[in-house]
Design a protein around this nucleic acid. Structure first.
Lengths: 250, 250
DNA sequence: CGCAGAATTGATACATCTCAAGCTGGGTGG
DNA sequence: CCACCCAGCTTGAGATGTATCAATTCTGCG
C-alpha cells in the first residue's frame, strides 16, 4: 500500500492535481514526491503546526476541523481522493488535520511545490479549479449548517456519501446504493453541527421510515437516492444534470 | 461614481485581481473592462442564470445566497472590495447574487477574461490566492454556523465588521471602532442562520452588557474589539498576529 | 404630520442538547 | 468455547436555546 508505485499507474493520475501533466512533467513530479501513510484516527497536523508539505489524498480520507477553547468543534472539510491538502503559500495549518481512515498521501515539500507551480502553470490552473470546487462545496455546506433541520442535515450527509459511491461505481443514481460509513457518529455530528445522539436518532428515524436500511451500524443501503435527497430538502437532480448537491461537504 | 476612471487611480488597483499587473498589462485590462453599478437591493443574477461576466467589486457589497424551495435561505458569501465575483469556468450562477449596497463592479466578459488569464498568468496566480482566502473564510464561517450560540454568532459578525473597519482606517485594533451596518437585521440573520428577532435580541443584549453601543439601529460603536471577540468565543488575536478570525464571513 | 418599512419586545411552541442509562458487537483471556 | 469487557451506538427524560407568531415602537421620508 505504502510503496511508491509509478505515477503512471496511480489511481488519481487523471483526476488529481497532476491531471494536466504530460509524461515529461510527470517524471519531474515523480522525483519530487514522497508517500506518507497514516492510520485511522492519526493526526497529520494540529492547528498552528508548521506544514512541511502539501499533498494529494491518494487513499482514505482526511478531516479538517476547528476546535474552540471549551471543546466544541466543527469539521470544516472532509478531503477524499483526489483532493489536495494544504496551500503552497501557507506556513502553518489553520486547522486540525486528521486521517479519518487509513490514508495515503502523495506529498511534496511545500516550497518545492511552489517552484513546480511556477515551472508548470497547468499545476496552478488545476489547483485553482480544485479550490473553486472546494469553495462551492463549502458554501453548499453553509446552507446545510445554517438552514436545515437535524433530519435534513443527516439525509444530506448520507446523500453525499451515496452519490459519491454511485459516481465511484458508475451506478445509475436511481438504483439501490450501498456503502460503508467510514466515520463514527461523533464525526458525523461534528460535520453537521449536531450531537452524536441527535445523529443517531435521525439515522434510526430514517431507517424506520424506509428511507435507508442499516445492515450494521456502519453499513448503509439507500434504496432510492432521490427519496433521500427529498428528505434532505434538496430538489432531486434531473437524471442528465450535473449534480451540484453531491459536492456538498466534500 | 459610475464613470470609468483610469485603472491607474482605481481604489483597488493594488489589492484586486489586477494587483500583479504591470502598466502594460493594465492597459489591456482597461480596454476589456466595463463598469456596471447596482442600487441597494438590486439583483445581479438569480441562481441558474447565465453569467455573462466576472467582476471585481469596486464599491459596495454583494451577497451570495441560496434559497430552499420553502423559502429558507442562507447567505453563503458577502463580497466586499476588492473581492472577485464569479468563476471564469462557470456558465451559470450557482447562487442568488444581490447588491446589498449601492455597488460598482468592474466587469469582464467571462470568456474574454479566461483568455486574459492565459495571457497573463499572474491573473491566475492572484485569483488562486484570493480563492484560497475565500475558502478559508467560508470554513471559518462553518465554525460560526455549526458551533456557536446566537450571542456568539452575533458578536462574531460584528467583530468581523469592526475589524474590517479597523483595517480600512488603519486603526489599532484595541481602540474604539465605529461603523455602519450596511445590511438589515434580516440579512444578518440570513448570514448567521438565525431569525431577525433573535439577531435583534442579541444586539440589544450586547448593548445592555456594554460590549457595543448603538448610536442608531444601523450605527455601531465597539469600545473594545478584544472584548467583543471574547464574546464571540474567539481567542483575541495577539497584537502583532495576523488575524484570521477577521476573515470570517467575508 | 403621517405613513410604511424596519426594528424591538413579548409569550409560547418546538427542536435539539444534555445527562444518564442500556444495548450491541467484536475482541480478549481464561 | 464461553464469559467478559469495552467502545461505539442507541434510547430515554428533562433542560435549554431559538423559532414562531403577534404586538408595539422606532425611524426615515414623502
Amino acid at each position: 500500500m505504502l510503496q511508491a508505485n509509478s505515477c503512471r499507474s496511480c489511481a488519481i493520475r487523471h483526476t488529481g492535481i497532476c491531471s494536466g501533466c504530460g509524461a515529461n512533467d510527470l517524471r519531474l513530479l515523480e522525483k519530487a514526491r514522497y508517500i506518507r501513510s497514516y492510520d485511522a484516527g492519526q493526526p497529520i497536523a494540529w492547528c498552528g503546526d508548521r506544514m512541511e508539505f502539501v499533498a494529494s489524498v491518494m487513499h482514505g480520507s482526511v478531516s479538517l476541523s476547528q476546535t474552540m477553547k471549551d471543546g466544541r468543534n466543527q469539521m470544516v472539510g472532509l478531503l477524499m481522493p483526489p483532493s489536495f491538502l494544504g496551500q503552497p503559500g501557507q506556513e502553518s495549518s489553520p486547522y486540525d488535520v486528521v486521517a479519518v481512515d487509513y490514508t495515503v498521501l502523495c506529498c511534496f515539500c511545500r516550497n518545492q511545490f511552489g517552484d513546480l507551480m511556477k515551472e508548470f502553470p497547468h499545476l496552478t490552473d488545476r489547483l485553482l479549479e480544485m479550490s473553486l470546487r472546494e469553495l462551492d462545496a463549502a458554501r453548499q455546506w453553509l446552507l446545510v449548517l445554517g438552514c436545515k433541520l437535524a433530519r435534513e442535515k443527516t439525509a444530506s450527509f448520507l446523500a453525499v456519501l451515496a452519490s459519491r459511491e454511485a459516481v465511484a461505481k458508475a451506478l445509475p443514481r436511481t438504483r439501490r446504493i450501498a456503502f460503508d460509513l467510514t466515520i463514527s457518529r461523533e464525526a458525523i455530528a461534528a460535520c453537521l453541527g449536531l450531537t452524536m445522539e441527535t445523529v443517531s436518532r435521525q439515522i434510526t428515524a430514517l431507517k424506520n421510515d424506509g428511507i435507508i436500511q442499516l445492515k450494521s451500524a456502519r453499513r448503509i443501503v439507500v434504496p432510492d437516492v432521490n427519496r433521500l435527497l427529498r428528505e434532505a430538502g434538496d430538489v432531486p437532480a434531473a437524471p442528465d444534470e450535473g449534480d451540484r448537491a453531491i459536492s456538498a461537504i466534500a
